[in-house]
Write a protein that binds this DNA or RNA. Structure first.
Length: 607
RNA sequence: GGGGGUGUAGCUCAAUUGGUUAGAGCGCUGCCCUGUCACGGCAGAGGUUACGGGUUCGAGUCCCGCCACUCCCGCCA
C-alpha cells in the first residue's frame, strides 16, 4: 500500500495519471449501476467511480455494501469529469478517479452519530461526542481545531527560540505546596505514606531555573489543579510558561505582544496592533466591574457617589455614609426587559451579596421605577447627564462597598450584554480582539474570616519598588508588579516580576502571610536558600494555551481544542476514568480506601 | 457543596389541559435505479420516554428521589 496523493490533491492536470488514494468512505451514492464513493482523508475528499462495465461484479457489490467511515484503498485512473458533472463545491470537483483496484482496509459498523453532516454533527450531544471522541475528531471543525493548535504551538516555539529562550522540562512529580489550588496527589510506593503532588504550575522550578542561569526559559507545560471545572477550566491544562532574568515589566510586555502578534498572524493571518493598552486594576473595576474587562460591549460603570451623598433615598446615602459607593450602568435599549429578567438580575446580584438591584426603565417618556420618587431634581439631572439616558434605556444601580458594588455591576453588565446579543441589539464583530494589560493589582488582599492577608497572585510577586516601605505600615496600599493580559474579557495569562531578595521574601512569608518560620522553611526553604546563592532579578508569565487556542478557533469551550478533555465532573467518557484499582495496587502503595465502593456496572452484553 | 438547563427511536427533534396504538427527518435493513455529489423511488424494522418510586380511571406530561451531560456560584495562591 502506498498512497500516491492525498484526497485534496488531484486537479484537472492530473488527468490520465494512475493514482492510489486511501481514506474513509465519506459518502456513497449508488445509482444501481454506477457507484460513486467520496473518499476522505484529513486533507479533503475526492470522488471515485465504480463502473460495472469496467469492474468485476464482486468488487462493485463489495463497494456498494460499505458503511460510511469504512477505510478503503482505491487505485485507478484520474480523469476529467464529463461535462456538466463537475462539482464546484469541492476543490477536487473537476476530476474523479475511475477505480481499477479496491481494498477494504477496515469495515466500519454503523456509526453512533453522523460524522459527515456538519449541520447535525455540531448539535450532537456532547456526552456522545466525548465517548466516541475519535469520531468527533474526524469532523472537519474539530480536525481544524487540532491543526490550528499544533500550528500555534509551533509558532510559539519558533518565536521564543528566535528570542533566545530555552525549552526546559520540569518535573510532573512534585511536592505538595498546600496553598492555592487543590492538588492531585500521587502516592509513593517506595516511601510509604508519602506523596508527590502534580504541579499546579512549574512556578517554583522556573524561578529556580533563573537562579540556575538559564536567563530565558519557556515550556508548553502541563499543569494540574483538582478544582471544579468550567467551560474554560479543565483539571489538566496547558500553559505557555515563560520566565526571564534581568528584565522589568516593559521587557515582558514587549515580548508577549510580539508573541501574540506572531500567533495571530500565523493562525488567522491578522495583524493585531501593539502595544496593547494598559489599565490599572482600580480603573478596570471602576469602569468595567471586573479585572478582565470586555471592552467591546460598552455600558461602562458610572460613579454617582457624590451625587447621592446627601440624598433622601437612604439606601444610597446610608451606604455612602458607611464608606460605600453608588454606581450605575446604562443598559442601552433594555427597557423592554421583562419582570422575569429583572428578577433574574436581582437574584444574580443578590448571589454576589447585593441587597437588591435598583433600576429605572425609561419607557414612553417616563422613568418607571420603584425608587425614582425618592430622587430630587438635581439627582435626576445628574443621572440623566452622567448616564446619557434616552428612551428605551434600563438603568441599574449598585450601592455597596467599592469592590462589591463594582463586581456586582460588572456581572450584571455581562448579563445585559448576553440579553442584548440574544435580542439582536448588540452585535460584536467576530474578528475584533481587544487586547489589554491589566496592571497594578494590589499585592495582598485581606481575608476577613481568616483575619489574615493573602497574596492576590502568589507569594513570589514583587511589590512595586516605591511601595516596599508600605509593606510594614499599610499593606493594603502595596501594589504588586503583577500583570494580566486580557482579550475580549478573557484572562489569557498573568505573571509578575518576582521577588529575588531573600529578606523581602521572608517578610512576605512570615510577617504578612503569617506562615510560621518553620513551615516556610519546610515548604519553600529550597527557594529561599537558592536566593542566597546569586539570584538574578527575574520575572515571567504564563499564558493559558487552551484558552488562547479556543479564542483563535472562535469557541468558548476549551473542550473543543483539547483532544481528549474531561467532563464537568472530571471524568473521561471514552476510557471511563477515574476507575477503581486492584487491591494489589493499593497494597503496593500502602493505601486503604475508605470510600464506599461504587457498584460494579453490569457486564456489557455480548456483541 | 449550592442554583439553573437538558435527557423521548442509532442521531436531531415533535407530541395541545394528564387522554386513542408516542410521531417526523436523517440513519439502518430489503428491493429498484448507469452521472450522482443532501442522488432518487418503493417497502420495512427500530421505543423500559435516563433510572426508581408516587398521585391518578389514565403519566412522556404532575409530585418525590436518583443518575448522566451542561452552564453558573463557591473554588481556581
Amino acid at each position: 500500500m502506498k498512497r500516491t496523493h492525498h484526497c485534496n490533491e488531484l486537479r484537472a492536470d492530473h488527468a490520465g495519471k494512475t493514482v492510489t488514494l486511501v481514506g474513509w468512505v465519506h459518502s456513497r451514492r449508488d445509482l444501481g449501476g454506477l457507484l460513486f464513493i467520496d473518499i476522505r482523508d484529513r486533507e479533503g475528499r475526492t470522488q471515485t467511480v465504480f463502473d460495472p462495465s469496467d469492474l468485476p461484479k464482486e468488487i462493485c457489490d463489495q463497494a456498494a455494501a460499505l458503511h460510511s467511515e469504512s477505510v478503503i484503498e482505491v487505485a485507478g485512473l484520474v480523469r476529467q469529469r464529463p461535462q456538466g458533472t463537475e462539482n464546484s463545491k469541492i476543490p477536487t470537483g473537476q476530476v474523479e478517479v475511475m477505480v481499477k483496484q479496491f481494498t477494504v482496509l477496515n469495515h466500519a459498523d454503523v456509526l453512533p452519530f453522523p460524522v459527515d453532516d456538519p449541520e447535525i454533527a455540531s448539535k450532537v450531544n456532547e456526552e456522545l461526542r466525548l465517548k466516541y471522541r475519535y469520531l468527533d475528531l474526524r469532523r472537519p471543525e474539530m480536525a481544524r481545531n487540532l491543526r490550528l493548535r499544533s500550528k500555534v504551538a509551533t509558532a510559539t516555539r519558533v518565536y521564543l527560540d528566535d528570542q533566545g529562550f530555552l525549552e526546559v522540562e520540569t518535573p510532573t512529580l512534585f511536592k505538595s505546596t498546600p496553598e492555592g489550588a487543590r492538588e492531585f496527589l500521587v502516592p509513593s510506593r517506595i516511601h510509604p505514606g508519602q506523596f508527590y503532588a502534580l504541579p499546579q504550575s512549574p512556578q517554583q522550578f522556573k524561578q529556580i531555573l533563573m537562579v540556575a542561569g538559564v536567563e530565558r526559559y519557556f515550556q508548553l507545560a502541563r499543569c494540574y489543579r483538582d478544582e471544579d471545572l468550567r467551560a474554560d477550566r479543565q483539571p489538566e491544562f496547558t500553559q505557555v510558561d515563560i520566565e526571564m532574568s534581568f528584565i522589568d515589566r516593559e521587557d515582558l510586555y514587549a515580548l508577549i505582544e510580539g508573541l501574540l502578534k506572531r500567533v495571530w498572524k500565523t493562525a488567522l493571518n491578522m495583524d493585531i496592533p501593539t502595544p496593547f493598552k494598559r489599565i490599572s486594576f482600580e480603573e478596570a473595576l471602576n469602569r468595567y466591574g471586573i479585572d478582565k474587562p470586555d471592552s467591546r460591549i460598552g455600558m461602562e460603570l458610572n460613579d454617582l457617589t457624590d451625587d447621592f451623598r446627601s440624598s433622601t433615598f437612604k439606601v444610597f446615602s446610608g451606604t455612602i455614609a458607611a464608606g460605600g459607593v453608588v454606581k450605575a450602568i446604562n443598559a442601552k435599549g433594555l427597557a423592554c426587559a421583562t419582570q422575569g429578567q429583572i428578577e433574574t438580575m436581582t437574584e444574580y446580584a443578590k448571589s454576589f451579596g447585593a441587597k437588591g438591584l435598583a433600576f429605572i426603565k425609561v419607557e414612553g417618556g417616563e422613568w418607571k421605577s420603584p425608587i425614582v420618587k425618592f430622587f430630587s431634581e438635581a439627582e435626576k439631572t445628574a443621572l440623566k447627564s452622567k448616564l446619557a439616558i434616552e428612551e428605551g434605556d434600563l438603568i441599574l444601580f449598585a450601592a455597596d462597598q467599592w469592590l462589591n458594588a463594582c463586581e456586582i455591576l460588572g456581572k450584571i453588565r455581562l448579563y445585559c450584554a448576553e440579553v442584548l446579543k440574544s435580542q439582536g441589539k448588540l452585535t460584536i464583530d467576530p474578528t475584533r480582539f481587544d487586547f489589554m494589560w491589566v496592571v497594578e493589582f494590589p499585592l495582598l488582599s485581606f481575608d476577613k474570616e481568616m483575619n489574615r492577608w493573602y497574596s492576590s497572585h502568589h507569594p513570589f510577586t514583587a511589590p512595586v519598588t516605591e511601595d516596599i516601605p508600605l509593606l510594614k505600615t499599610d499593606p493594603k496600599k502595596v501594589r504588586g508588579q503583577h500583570y494580566d493580559v486580557v482579550v475580549n474579557g478573557v484572562e489569557l495569562g498573568g505573571g509578575s516580576i518576582r521577588i529575588h531578595q531573600p529578606d523581602v521574601q521572608k517578610t512576605i512569608f512570615e510577617e504578612l502571610l503569617q506562615i510560621p518560620a518553620q513551615e516556610t522553611q519546610e515548604r519553600f526553604g529550597y527557594m529561599l536558600e537558592a536566593f542566597r546563592y546569586g539570584a538574578p532579578p527575574h520575572g515571567g508569565i504564563a499564558l493559558g494555551f487552551d484558552r488562547l487556542v479556543a479564542i483563535l478557533c472562535g469557541t468558548t469551550s476549551i473542550r473543543d481544542v483539547i483532544a481528549f478533555p474531561k467532563t464537568a465532573k472530571g471524568t473521561c467518557l471514552m476510557t471511563d476514568s477515574p476507575a477503581p484499582v486492584t487491591p494489589r495496587q493499593l497494597r503496593d502503595l500502602h493505601i486503604d480506601v475508605r470510600a464506599a465502593k461504587k457498584e460494579a456496572p453490569p457486564a456489557a452484553p455480548a456483541v
